[in-house]
Structure formats: C-alpha cells, structure tokens
Amino acid sequence: MQINVISTPDGYVENYAIVGSTGGSIVTATISDSQIDYFVTHHAAYRLENGALVLDEDKLAAEQAAAEQAALTARYIPSEAQSAAAVGQMVLAQMANLDDDARIRVSGLYGPWSAGQFEVGDIRNSGGQTWACFQAHDNATYPDIKPGSAAWFTFWRPLHGKSPETARPFAPVQGAHDMYKIGEYAVFEDALYKCVQDTAYSPADYPQAWEKLN
C-alpha cells in the first residue's frame, strides 16, 4: 500500500498519513499491508529507500533500549525537583530549633497544607502564611480542621516574622499562643507595621501597639 510521508534530511520518517495529506514536503512511499500495523507503532525507525519504507533494525533497537532506560529512570530515580525537596526535608529535620523568623525564611522548603495526620511542630504553607501545628490532630477524624475554618486556629498558629523581609499578612489573634510580640512585623492593608508592644489586636483596632513603616 502507499503512504504519504515527510522524511528527515537523512531519510527517516518524521510524519506520515495513511489517508490524506501530512502537509509540507510529501513523498509517496510503499509498504506491504502486513507491515502497516508495525509501521504505525515504530514509524520513526523506518527510512525511505528507492520509494519503499524499510525498517532500520539498529535504530529500532536503539530506540527501544532508550525507552526502556527512560521507563526504569521514571520508575526508580526521583526527579531533580523531588530530590531537592528530599534534601530540603533532611535539612529541616536537622534544624528543629529554628525560630519562627528562620522558618519563614526557608518556608519554600515546607509543603503546602493538605488533609492528613499532624503532630505538634509540623509546618505547612497556606494562604501566603506559614503555619505551625500546636495541637496534634487527624483530618480523617476531624475533617473540619482546614485553612479558613473556625477550627483551624485552634490547632494551627501563623508564624510571625522579625524583619520587613519576613513580614506576613496580619492574622487575627486567637489567644496567647499567637499574639504578636515586640519586634515582630506584619503586613496590614498593604502597609508594613512593626509591633512595639505585645498585642492581640490589629493596627486598626489598637494602633498604639504598632509602628507603621511605609
């Protein structure tokens, strides 16, 4: 049967159409009916020789070997991003005594929050904030404990930065565990503030506890 093909400069099939046109520079080539199914699967290993499509066994073997290697790599070798994430987790495990400000500075190494089982001290990111779990819980038992819910603040606290670079959006204070302390920073209504006295209130509700910086 005849097939319309586009070939590479060295004569191998780049594209083909059994019916209709491939577009571009087309050559009509022949192949036996019994080979057509195999051609469709391995067409890149075929080349044009005197108007006929001929299978290059060496190229096919090389392509199959490369595909096998790629499959093994994909199955067993983590990606560069996965490896970097694993290194980050190892580093974090060795830095258990980081304060809130330091954790914010490396917050890109922590994963985003998703439902799961959490222990005290676990760190996750959500909504532009980095959060620390201060009461262990399991979402399988308590599905309502999630970002934005009323229950969230009973189990998680936002980390507070101690510099303009680590300032994060002001989070409503729920108790002594997440009060803003002297020297901490927050972003409130697109302005940067420094806490000048311990407070449970925002710059709008208790401005004397905050110094506006910009």
Results as ranks from 00 to 15, higher is better:
residue 1 M to T: 01
residue 4 N to Y: 01
residue 8 T to Q: 03
residue 8 T to P: 10
residue 10 D to K: 08
residue 11 G to S: 06
residue 12 Y to A: 03
residue 12 Y to V: 03
residue 18 I to H: 00
residue 18 I to C: 05
residue 26 I to S: 06
residue 33 D to M: 08
residue 37 D to M: 12
residue 39 F to K: 05
residue 40 V to D: 12
residue 46 Y to L: 13
residue 50 N to W: 14
residue 51 G to L: 09
residue 51 G to W: 11
residue 54 V to R: 06
residue 55 L to R: 01
residue 59 K to V: 09
residue 60 L to N: 02
residue 61 A to D: 01
residue 61 A to M: 02
residue 63 E to S: 00
residue 65 A to H: 00
residue 66 A to G: 03
residue 69 Q to T: 04
residue 69 Q to I: 12
residue 70 A to F: 04
residue 70 A to V: 01
residue 73 T to V: 14
residue 76 Y to N: 06
residue 84 A to W: 09
residue 85 A to Y: 13
residue 85 A to H: 15
residue 86 A to M: 15
residue 88 G to D: 15
residue 89 Q to F: 13
residue 89 Q to L: 07
residue 89 Q to T: 10
residue 90 M to L: 10
residue 94 Q to D: 10
residue 95 M to N: 12
residue 96 A to V: 02
residue 101 D to S: 08
residue 102 A to P: 09
residue 104 I to P: 08
residue 107 S to D: 14
residue 108 G to A: 14
residue 108 G to N: 13
residue 111 G to M: 15
residue 111 G to R: 14
residue 112 P to I: 07
residue 113 W to P: 09
residue 113 W to A: 04
residue 115 A to L: 14
residue 117 Q to H: 13
residue 119 E to M: 12
residue 121 G to P: 08
residue 123 I to Q: 11
residue 127 G to W: 07
residue 129 Q to F: 15
residue 134 F to R: 12
residue 135 Q to I: 10
residue 137 H to W: 09
residue 138 D to T: 06
residue 139 N to G: 11
residue 139 N to L: 02
residue 141 T to M: 10
residue 143 P to V: 06
residue 145 I to H: 00
residue 146 K to G: 01
residue 159 L to C: 10
residue 162 K to R: 15
residue 172 P to M: 03
residue 172 P to E: 09
residue 173 V to N: 10
residue 177 H to W: 15
residue 179 M to G: 11
residue 181 K to D: 09
residue 182 I to M: 12
residue 183 G to A: 05
residue 186 A to I: 00
residue 187 V to M: 08
residue 191 A to I: 06
residue 192 L to H: 04
residue 193 Y to L: 00
residue 194 K to A: 10
residue 194 K to P: 12
residue 196 V to I: 13
residue 197 Q to S: 09
residue 203 P to G: 07
residue 203 P to L: 04
residue 204 A to E: 02
residue 206 Y to N: 11
residue 209 A to Y: 01
residue 211 E to H: 03
residue 213 L to P: 07
residue 213 L to W: 02
